[in-house]
Structure formats: structure tokens, C-alpha cells
């Protein structure tokens, strides 16, 4: 069970690191590029919004996995 938890956390950490790297790449911040729009929102804005939601979701999964972990209480 502990190994499964550790593995899941590592997967989440990898996803977080990949998203971190992608944030500073032309995938999220292409220079002088406003298309494609999404519901009238320019590319960097809706991609940036998506990235922030991804991090909150990843954080939520970490909190679920850590629920039963040994804690400081």
C-alpha cells in the first residue's frame, strides 16, 4: 500500500514538473500568438487558465493520496 502511494506521488510529481516546464515553453507562451481563441479568449489566457486548474487538480490528488499518511499531529 505504501509503495503504491509512493509511486502515485512520484507520478503526480512528474506530471507537475512536466506542466511546470511546459508553462515556460511556446506550448503555453508562444510569442505574439493570440490564436486559436476559445470562447473569444486568446490562446495564452485560456492555456494559462488551464495550467492553473491543472496544478490545483494535481494538488487535490496529492491531498487524497496523503490522507492516511503519517502526519505531524
Amino acid at each position: 500500500m505504501k509503495m503504491k502511494r509512493t509511486t502515485l506521488l512520484r507520478v503526480l510529481d512528474c506530471l507537475a514538473i512536466l506542466t511546470f516546464i511546459a508553462t515556460f515553453s511556446p506550448l503555453v507562451i508562444p510569442e505574439n500568438e493570440i490564436r486559436p481563441f476559445l470562447m473569444g479568449i486568446p490562446y495564452t489566457m485560456w492555456m494559462g487558465f488551464l495550467v492553473s486548474v491543472i496544478f490545483v487538480v494535481l494538488a487535490y490528488f496529492v491531498s487524497i493520496i496523503n490522507k492516511e499518511e503519517r502526519n505531524a499531529d
Partner: peptide, 19 residues
Amino acid sequence: VGAWIFLAVSDTMMVYALL
């Protein structure tokens, strides 16, 4: 709109690190 990446995205990265 890059200001969103500057603050909002960084804040959510911070939340992950905090956890």
C-alpha cells in the same frame, strides 16, 4: 494577459509545492 502566467499560474504552482 501574460500577467495571468506571472501570478495566477505561479500561485497554483506554489500550492502544489506547499502540499
